[in-house]
């Protein structure tokens, strides 16, 4: 009904019932078997969805509900009867009659090796989830030798694609790592690529899955593959708009609020002393839900719930970082 206040009240109101979209067609269901149990899932569901429906816990690293699956970490692999190789549960669609094993010997071996390969090459000290997985799968990264010392600043960024780094040079008997100095080039967040497992989540969040800024991408190749700006320019020279959505999706703490990083350096970071309170962002009319993390009456970081209808976990620079003034007492 057009009110009397409408700018042009002469526009005729259509007669008859208000047009409605057609009712959604009932989705077909797909029946399959996982670990001997039958399960029916809507068409288009993944094996991960199906396993979760049965309460079977499947480890994931590069998967996140609010991002497109890239299936690169391979921790979620499962065995499908008739398939030559294991398949990634996070992206493989359920098919009628599939027989899936999520805990076979092959699955456990691959998951264990993936964890050992990560554990022997990446600093996982701020990735408690992966540490839990390593315990569960009895992963022993030290089987591959002691970790090599970290690279110098910029050394990994300068690697030519295809250029060979001979093993044992200069650290014989050591396992190569991605160790390198932390990149601190702005006031808001730091990038510690010693902790990067190359899960692509930050690139997706910076790109079409959330922010459409494209400040970072994959560069290099093979073991030298890395997240980088163009020519490794510092973030202030890049397209970065400091939305912090990359920090929000990082599973290992490689991307971290400067506030958290500084407190960790000072030894004052203590999650047991922190509260998390949901509120609505005061800046604009969108109404994003903020989760404010407070330690000793100071805001230490701001996140947003992944399942929030408005944000899907993503924020902008104001919601993510615009709280410095709250901590000022003068």
């Amino acid at each position: 009904m057009i009110s009397q206040d409408a700018p042009d009240a002469k526009i005729p109101v259509p007669r008859g019932p208000v047009p409605m979209p057609p009712p959604p067609r009932p989705r077909r269901t797909v029946e399959l078997t996982i670990d001997g149990q039958s399960v029916a899932v809507p068409e288009g569901a993944t094996l991960l969805d199906a396993a979760r429906q049965l309460g079977i816990e499947t480890p994931t690293l590069c998967f996140l509900e609010n991002l497109t699956p890239v299936n690169v970490c391979r921790i979620c692999v499962v065995e499908v009867e008739g398939s030559r190789t294991l398949v990634p549960a996070c992206s493989r669609k359920a098919e009628p009659g599939m027989k899936v094993s999520t805990d076979s010997e092959r699955v456990r071996l691959s998951r264990k090796l993936v964890l050992e390969l990560l554990g022997s090459s990446v600093d996982l000290s701020t990735a408690p989830q992966i540490q839990d997985y390593m315990e569960r799968y009895d992963a022993k990264p030290e089987r591959f030798g002691p970790p090599a010392p970290p690279a110098r600043a910029g050394e990994r960024d300068a690697a030519r694609p295809g250029h060979h780094h001979p093993p044992g040079v200069p650290h014989d008997g050591c396992a190569a790592t991605v160790g390198q100095p932390v990149k601190v080039d702005n006031e808001l967040y730091v990038r510690d690529y010693s902790k990067c497992i190359v899960c692509y989540k930050c690139v997706e969040a910076c790109g079409t899955d959330a922010q459409n800024t494209f400040a970072i991408a994959l560069a290099g190749r093979g073991f030298d593959a890395r997240i980088s700006t163009e020519y490794d320019v510092p973030l202030p020279d890049s397209a970065c708009v400091y939305c912090g959505n990359c920090i929000g999706v990082c599973p290992t703490g490689a991307l971290m609020f400067k506030s958290e990083f500084d407190m960790r350096q000072a030894g004052t970071w203590d999650e047991s002393q922190q509260t998390a309170t949901d509120t609505i962002c005061p800046y604009c009319g969108v109404g994003c839900t903020l989760t404010v993390h407070v330690q000793e009456e100071k805001i230490v970081k701001v996140t947003s719930p992944l399942d929030n209808d408005v944000t899907r976990g993503h924020l902008c620079i104001k919601g993510r970082f615009g709280w410095e003034w709250v901590n000022r007492r003068e």
Binding site: V72, H164, P167, R221, G222, F223, D224
Partner: peptide, 28 residues
């Protein structure tokens, strides 16, 4: 082993790190 290490695209963990560990192991 060197060939596969140098030519891995680096996308998935088993190949990106596995080809490095394979070469290190043969070196040892």
């Amino acid at each position: 082993a060197q060939f596969f290490r140098d030519e891995s695209c680096g996308q998935c963990v088993p190949c990106r790190v596995g080809t490095v560990r394979q070469e290190e192991l043969l070196h040892r």
